[in-house]
Write a protein that binds this DNA or RNA. Structure first.
Length: 629
DNA sequence: TAGCTTGTTGGTCTC
DNA sequence: AGAGACCAACAAGCT
């Protein structure tokens, strides 16, 4: 009888009320009722890597949003529904007599696939879908289109495309009123998800139970699940989520005009803690509790009235937001392969240790990897656990595990160390650890930065290598940061704080710590133990640089036929760093049996040979002669 | 065309 | 203390 719209507003990575073009579009419909929902997606619960700190942050955001909604309309709140959106939404459309589904566009590969499916069903059921861009400064698909249809790989490309697209959209105010939701009956069966494989099993102390209590939660009130329901221990991060916190951080940043106008990322200290040297807005941008466009214009207001010399992109605060758009543009154009080497035409192929297994049917990495060398697996575990014996690296990795956040340059240091500047281990291993532990993890930025640091895309100056000893001394001669996060070393003399293995035994004993073993044993008598370094850094650095030099001269990319069929091994010297021995190789660097693909002769691959001075062998010989000296 | 500049964020030395 | 030269040498865009 009524033509008034009945609208579901589907919150995802836009957990805010201010500056939401999608929410504004929903309200423009003048709906008779508005259901603000969150679908508790098993993909996120089981298949994405999400550590306890990011769960806490998400739950904070949801609770704060729900309270924010209730503040505007006491009859409304965030309705959390525990089922996959692909199966749940069609049932809700019917049950609640929905006319419109509205949400913010998400260009992550899985999100696109999910949303395509939902749109298809909605169309079939006669439900109109409204999707608005709002996660980035510019609609990532438009950015790509304006960049001649190509992934945005440099800031110059982003700036050129942005100039054509015009100014960033002005932020919208939060709504002053919200319609009531309609009838909340749920007369249908809950479809429970398959819990295996569960990538987050290692974090659970009891079974995951967020689907065991029905669609609307244990009290039937659509409550936000708790960590306990997820079987998780308490979070350890001091950083908390929610729109109200995000807006307060923004106010604090903006009220410091000098900080805002003269911000220059490369000169902020990665060793600063309590407080850190940057504004820590990244998790709020990820969960959408802070609009990047509001941030943009608040910065602009400061710049407009600032009398001194302000910094500019790419190092300025505006520059940081442009980088985010760059990575989103790259991901939007490349899709699923963006997060991996296999089939990624913009990612250089390097024969890293611990390569991913690739599903031959889908072409996607499975989350498992090959252990080509047990020593490298040990290095990887010790890196992951903050026990490499390099205090700067270990302090950062322990800060990551405890707090879910480390400074951008700290991320550079540990990423370079794991990949091209130390362990020569696959950047996909590192990206997975960051995915699990970072509270601000978003695939586009995480993967993009790992590719940058590994010098496989975005960046290529692999001879510029971060030293775990010299680099932190630029900001923290005394080693206060190390002393904070590696307490075993808190009394180590400053002279040895970044290389404690050089401290004489007497100095070690005086400091209450022995530099001994591999980090397994924590104490010996009264003395703490801190591990010996996993390797001689300068030797490994040399090996890595030579490895990169040979991989660059061979010039393969993730989509090169030799990479996909495993014949890449024939192009590398057996003695080259990485699993290059023999002639059997799997797709994209894994060690699987390549026989199934035949042993056809290598043909010169035009796409894979952009370099004029390709031809490898002499370069290789030179490289390895040098490595020996 | 070959050479120059630029690219968010290196290390080491000198002044 | 901080800037500049040099190290060794990548890619892309420009002239």
């Amino acid at each position: 009888m009524t033509n008034a719209p009945r609208v579901i507003y589907w919150f995802r990575t836009d957990l805010r009320l201010h500056d939401s073009p999608a929410l504004a579009a929903a309200l423009d419909l003048k709906p008779e009722c508005l259901y603000p929902i969150w679908t508790w997606d098993p993909h996120y619960v089981y298949r994405a890597r999400v550590g306890v700190n990011r769960w806490q942050f998400l739950i904070d955001c949801q609770n704060d949003l729900s309270q924010g909604i209730t503040k505007i309309n006491k009859n409304s709140k965030l309705l959390v529904l525990r089922e996959a959106p692909q199966t749940l939404l069609p049932k809700l459309f019917k049950e609640w007599n929905i006319t419109h589904l509205v949400f913010e566009k998400d260009t992550d590969a899985y999100a696109r696939e999910r949303d395509d499916k939902v749109c298809e069903i909605a169309n079939e059921m006669g439900v109109r879908v409204i999707m608005k861009s709002g996660r980035t400064l510019y609609d990532s698909d438009l950015l790509v289109k304006t960049n001649h249809g190509k992934p945005t790989m440099t800031i110059a490309q982003v700036e050129a495309a942005a100039a054509k697209l015009g100014k960033v959209a002005k932020p919208l105010p939060a709504p002053s009123s919200l319609p009531d939701p309609g009838d909340l009956s749920l007369e249908f069966e809950q479809e429970k998800p398959k819990s295996e494989p569960d990538f987050n099993k290692s974090h659970r102390v009891s079974g995951e139970g967020s689907y065991e209590v029905g669609i609307s939660g244990p009290n039937g009130d659509f409550s936000v699940p708790t960590l306990k329901e997820l079987g998780l221990q308490e979070a350890t991060t001091p950083h908390r989520g929610g729109e109200s916190i995000a807006l307060k951080i923004l106010d604090d940043v903006i009220s410091n005009e000098t900080f805002t106008a003269t911000f220059s990322k490369p000169s902020t200290a990665p060793t600063a803690f309590e407080p850190q040297s940057t504004c820590l807005t990244s998790p709020h941008l990820h969960f959408g509790t802070l609009s990047c466009r509001l941030f943009w214009y608040k910065i602009q207001e400061v710049l407009d009235s600032y009398k001194g010399k302000a910094t500019e992109p790419p190092t300025s605060l505006h520059g940081q937001l442009l980088f985010r758009d760059m990575y989103f543009g790259a991901q939007a154009a490349i899709g699923y392969p963006f997060a991996q080497t296999a089939k990624n035409d913009h990612c250089r192929f390097v024969p890293w240790h611990l390569p991913s297994k690739v599903d031959e049917k889908t072409g996607l990495i499975t989350g498992e990897y090959e252990i080509d060398d047990p020593q490298k697996e040990e290095w990887f575990k010790r890196w992951r656990n903050g026990k490499t014996g390099f205090p700067w690296i270990d302090a950062l990795m322990r800060q990551l595990a405890q707090e879910g956040w480390i400074h951008h340059l700290g991320r550079h240091a540990v990423a370079c160390f794991l990949t091209r500047g130390g362990c020569y281990i696959h950047w996909e291993r590192g990206a997975e650890v960051f995915e699990e532990l970072l509270i601000d993890h978003e695939t586009a930025c995480n993967v993009g930065n790992w590719q940058w640091l590994a010098c496989v895309a975005f960046y290529s100056q692999y001879y510029r290598c971060y030293s775990p000893i010299a680099f932190p001394q630029k900001w923290d001669k005394e080693g206060a940061f190390v002393r904070r996060y590696v307490p075993e070393l808190k009394d180590m003399p400053t002279k040895y704080i970044y290389e404690p293995w050089k401290a004489p035994i007497q100095d070690q004993k005086k400091a209450g710590v022995m530099i001994k073993g591999d980090g397994e044993q924590e104490k010996e008598g009264d003395l703490n133990l801190y591990p010996k370094p996993i390797f001689d850094f300068s030797k490994q650095r040399e090996i890595c640089i030579n490895g990169l030099k040979s991989a660059y001269s061979i010039g393969l990319y993730g989509d090169s036929p030799q990479v996909l069929d495993g014949t890449w091994k024939k192009m590398f010297d057996d003695d080259a760093e990485g699993p290059t021995q023999g002639d059997k190789g799997g797709p994209a660097g894994s060690l699987g049996d390549a026989d199934a693909h035949g042993t056809e002769e290598l043909k010169p691959d035009t796409k894979a040979t952009p370099s004029k001075k390709r031809g490898g062998q002499s370069t290789l010989e030179k490289a390895f002669k040098k490595a020996k000296t």
